[in-house]
Design a protein around this nucleic acid. Structure first.
Lengths: 105, 105
DNA sequence: GCCTTGTATCGACATTCGTCAACATAGAAG
DNA sequence: CTTCTATGTTGACGAATGTCGATACAAGGC
């Protein structure tokens, strides 16, 4: 939370990203993508990892993408997703800065 | 996300915490508490910072507490809240480990 | 005891969310 | 161009969420 409290706009932006992480399916999707060697995963490798319908997986991937946590590209028939590490770094920095702010106070 | 993908239980636990952070009011509450010198804030100092009813603020504080992000203690008439830094560290580690996992891959 | 103030809980409501089945779209292959 | 496979989109539904007013509880002062 930095040394100063968040203003409303900052809080709204950050909350949107945290909200995207606030679902177990999306967290598992993100971890599946991030842990894959090469950093890219085809949707066809993600869907069978869940007992959920394909549209539901597609929906969660869309939310993660809208939050700026992942991005994707179509190559032929398949669509590949990868993690946007900058966003993860931003969140991590926010959390640790919060911590340090308190310790310093 | 660590090197291996999250299992369902880990994802559910983490999602619960991230969900608590996925609301702008709760993020601002957390930042207000964390940025306060001494690390403790009375509810009476938090409520006037929002254009929301007192029960609503109380509700958000309860969710943050149930997520393990803050804790509180009553002293006389007033209730004081502080941040649980261990939980913030846990989340930050999770996010950065995810990042490194990809970079290593 | 009885008020007054600070905080939490309850009940209700509109909104949002997670999920699915059905349908639409994009490419490749024939 | 038709068909098949891989994804995305739409519409609908029940469940969860954010908010409030009303109420309850806690502690201090009278």
């Amino acid at each position: 939370m930095l040394t100063a409290p968040l203003d409303e706009d900052q809080a709204a932006d950050l909350a949107k990203i945290f909200k995207a992480l606030g679902d177990p399916v999306r967290l598992r999707l993100l971890s599946l993508i991030a842990s894959r060697a090469g950093g890219e995963v085809c949707v066809c490798d993600l869907t069978p990892a869940f007992e959920l319908s394909q549209p539901t997986i597609s929906h969660h991937l869309k939310l993660l993408r809208q939050a700026g946590l992942i991005d994707c590209e179509r190559r032929g028939t398949w669509v590949y997703y990868w993690v946007l590490t900058d966003t993860l770094d931003q969140l991590s920095t926010f959390l640790t800065t919060t911590h340090k702010a308190e310790a310093t106070a």
